[in-house]
């Protein structure tokens, strides 16, 4: 589903590249974990794959099309429909309610969000166990509940791929385990997941584990 070829990204001329001639293939429905030391380029890779940044060279094929050289409008649409991202923390707008945060991808235009989307959002919130919190503000949620909200935002628009950058990084191990459990369930339902994690145990729960070092895939961990 996603094929990366010879990706290079350097943030400054003097430093070694954050991602250095990296090749990667992710099949549809896979659950891939990426591990590696701090600074090995995991987040940079995830940002390139999820079309948040463009690499200096190389290509990322999504359904056979290079998304790195695609125009901004195409990348906007990808981020709004096919891809979803979850970060370590603070993925929500603090002044919107939980329901509004979930519906954020539909608030890109002047047209009001339709009933159908609201219903889907409520169903998805129930699915991640937050049916009773739709009116709360992110500040009133626990860390685990915030991550669930961010995951719900990925589900509401039927995203095909979820990119998660240390989604359990700021959670205690019990809460982290429940988030992992949720991701595994969603993966079982067909969602492709690419996750960066430092937690070996969680990494082992995924289908495939890749180890990164110095901007390259060093091999399966």
């Amino acid at each position: 589903m996603i094929t990366a070829r010879s990706l290079v990204k350097r943030y400054s001329e003097t430093e070694t590249p954050a991602v250095d001639h990296l090749d990667l293939h992710v099949d549809e429905g896979e659950f891939v974990s990426i591990t590696g030391r701090s600074g090995s380029g995991k987040s940079t890779l995830l940002h390139i794959l999820s079309s948040l940044i463009r690499p200096d060279s190389g290509e990322v094929l999504f359904r056979g099309r290079d998304i790195c050289t695609a125009p901004e409008s195409v990348r906007n649409r990808l981020r709004g429909a096919e891809f979803a991202v979850v970060f370590q923390q603070h993925c929500l707008l603090p002044y919107l309610s939980v329901l509004e945060n979930v519906l954020l991808p539909f608030m890109r235009g002047f047209a009001p969000v339709g009933r159908k989307h609201r219903e889907t959002a409520r169903a998805v919130l129930r699915r991640v166990g937050l049916g009773h919190k739709e009116r709360s503000r992110p500040g009133e949620l626990s860390g685990g509940e915030q991550q669930r909200t961010a995951i719900a935002r990925a589900l509401v628009r039927g995203a095909r791929v979820l990119f998660a950058d240390e989604p359990t990084g700021s959670l205690d191990s019990a809460t982290g385990t429940s988030i992992m459990q949720l991701l595994r369930e969603l993966n079982a339902d067909g969602l492709t997941v690419v996750m960066v994690t430092h937690n070996e145990e969680f990494a082992r729960l995924s289908g495939r584990v890749l180890a990164m070092a110095d901007g390259r895939i060093a091999g399966p961990a």
Partner: peptide, 8 residues
Amino acid sequence: IMRAVGFS
């Protein structure tokens, strides 16, 4: 966050 969910 807005850009990540597809805002232009």
